[in-house]
Nucleic acid binder design. Structure first.
Lengths: 185, 185
DNA sequence: TCACGACGGAACGGTTGCGTAGCGACGCAC
DNA sequence: GTGCGTCGCTACGCAACCGTTCCGTCGTGA
């Protein structure tokens, strides 16, 4: 019986290590060190760094994403941005996500895991939002879900992760407003 | 006198190595190997991996960015997107840029270099586009340049670098149209 | 022609991480 | 109380790079 508290300590350490040094530099030794655990304890649970990360990403995927249903396109978009901003402002997530995205181009398994954990979930939520908006007559029938996602999340991701700029009060409101206008165009 | 052809071979190798393995995994030995050059030749020119990369990024910065002046906001935005899409579809750039952006959070010097090389240039171009549009009455006086950049480049970056999705025909046209609508909202 | 300097290559000692093995200690089930 | 499995820890041989040093070679300018 593997001790659950040790397993949890390792999981936590992996996230911290991933944020601190990135996937490429992350080592099993470093994880064990940070977790206050022997290397053996890690190897007894996962066979490699890749397997370890894939397992954690999949665990995140299982959490799911709340689907907004506020009754208006603006409301739904605003809610979606709120969730996204909350996630991307988290210091660990905002570091780990782009790091793994880059690494994904070198490891197809990571790409698959990220797709399943993040992108698919987002796509599902966006599809529901678009479907509802079409039903209400707020959007044309032929609205493309992927394009909608680009327009809604893209600007926020750019600001928070690429430029790493501030998020002034009212920014999300304006962004939601702009996104709705963009979707209608 | 350092031989220019050797210097150039090293520069090329760094870009390739950066794209292939990323900054974290990149080694001086690997660069020299790829360039078909002795380690000595590299160390004779740059004192470290960081100095080497900073020098290359600065060189890119010196190239500058063309400022569109098509006479309409839509035309300017469309042109800007064309340039950005061209850059981000380049296999090396689309790998190196996000990699260095992540690394920038760990090395302030890289953050500064990237800012000088890419973000400042973009900001300048966007400022000119917004200024012209305001002068033509296409945009309100108080339009924020950073927000405009988020709305224009964000969706494209998201699609090309994050989702790594295709760029169907007419996508940029639609995106430019949406961005203009978003800016006016 | 000759001296100088950059060249590629090999080797140096040192560090770090790999994945594995063996250690005694501890805790839990029977 | 006895055994079994996991625990943290140390050590192993191996590999990759680090940054430096010393070769012998080659091209160029004086």
């Amino acid at each position: 019986m593997l001790r659950e508290d040790v397993t949890e300590a390792i999981r936590t350490a992996v996230f911290e290590e991933l944020a601190a040094v990135g996937y490429a530099r992350m080592s099993i030794e470093g994880i064990a060190r940070r977790a206050g655990v022997g290397k053996t304890a890690v190897y007894r649970r996962w066979k490699s760094k890749l397997a370890l990360v894939l397992d954690l990403v999949s665990a995140v995927a299982a959490e799911g994403l709340p689907a907004p249903a506020t009754g208006s396109l603006y409301g739904d978009v605003r809610a979606l941005l709120e969730v996204a901003a909350h996630a991307l402002r988290h210091p660990v997530a905002s570091q780990v996500v782009p790091d793994l995205l880059v690494e994904a181009t070198r490891h197809p398994e990571i790409a698959d895991a990220i797709r399943a954990a993040l992108l698919d979930g987002q796509h599902g939520v966006a599809a529901a939002v678009v479907r509802d908006a079409v039903a209400r007559g707020e959007l044309p029938e032929e609205t493309d879900v992927d394009r909608a996602l680009d327009l809604i999340v893209g600007p926020l991701y750019w600001r928070l992760v690429v430029v790493r700029g501030a998020l002034p009060a009212g920014y999300l409101d304006g962004l939601a407003q702009s996104a709705v206008a963009a979707l209608r165009a």
